[in-house]
Design a protein around this nucleic acid. Structure first.
Lengths: 142, 142
DNA sequence: ACCTCTTTGACCTTTCTTGACCTTAATACT
DNA sequence: AGTATTAAGGTCAAGAAAGGTCAAAGAGGT
């Protein structure tokens, strides 16, 4: 399949991100458009279709003078968060098994944990899950 | 990110505040403008857009001879977080009263809430407490 | 032919920068 | 004391410099 302009821009951005230190880049929309001799909205299109949250990216931008578009790849963070969550839930399951907490309590905990962390950024989630596990262990120790 | 003049002035002021003893500084608008070779109203702009109450700052000023602009970094966020926390705890107390949850469960919740949020930034705390309350209500509704 | 993804361009919104003009406070001069 | 001067800071609007939106037209595949 012949690569479309959108594909090439996508690739280009991914290389930039890969080369970056913090898995994050900042670009000027017009500059990138000039690089590929296309209209600026093409860049918007590429970002809107390929660098979505679902694909593991977060984008922010600012209009006006010295504006920019920031794209960060948060795949790693997301995975870390997922693992922390898993660990916490497994811990809760173990508490259930040894009957440190009741069935209802386990469900309640899982529910509030999932729901109250929904809006957090990936790395905040990790921290939260870890801290929660620690706090829970701490409470039951007494 | 290419920094705009406004960004640089913002940064500069923040450094000054950080270095200050009482999280508070007093500047001369013209002086600062001269430092950055810009018009004085640029300073007003920066203060008006970045050092807002919502962002946790309080500004006062005086015109005329010996005039000044005072910027203090206040703890609004912290207060907001405290209030969210209070609200959540009061909600939990109410659940205890109407026996939606047990004494032990109430204690457990309060414990894990306090402990797992310890390291969060103030505004994250607010969000977390609010979300937690919502999540808890949601769980018990079922 | 039809459907989906691309490409373009006209128009919109936000943010920043500058400058002319206004208000207030301290001080100097009658 | 009362007024004039001077030294601040405040307001507001215009213009420039980004990025955003949306819909129409184009391209490619089935």
């Amino acid at each position: 399949m012949k690569k479309s302009l959108a594909d090439r821009i996508e690739e280009y951005i991914k290389v930039l991100i890969a080369r970056s230190e913090a898995q994050q880049i900042e670009i000027q929309r017009v500059e990138l458009a000039e690089t590929f001799s296309c209209v600026p909205s093409q860049v918007t299109y590429v970002i809107g279709t390929r660098f979505t949250e679902k694909a593991g990216y977060i984008t922010e931008s600012r209009r006006g003078g010295k504006g920019f578009i920031r794209i960060s790849c948060c795949e790693l963070d997301k995975e870390a968060a997922w693992e922390s969550r898993q660990e916490l839930f497994i811990f809760i399951d173990r508490l259930l098994e040894v009957e440190s907490i009741s069935q209802k309590e386990g469900e309640m905990l899982k529910h509030v944990i999932s729901k109250s962390s929904k809006e957090m950024a990936p790395d905040q989630k990790s921290q939260f899950f870890d801290a929660f596990k620690y706090a829970l262990a701490d409470f039951l120790k007494k």
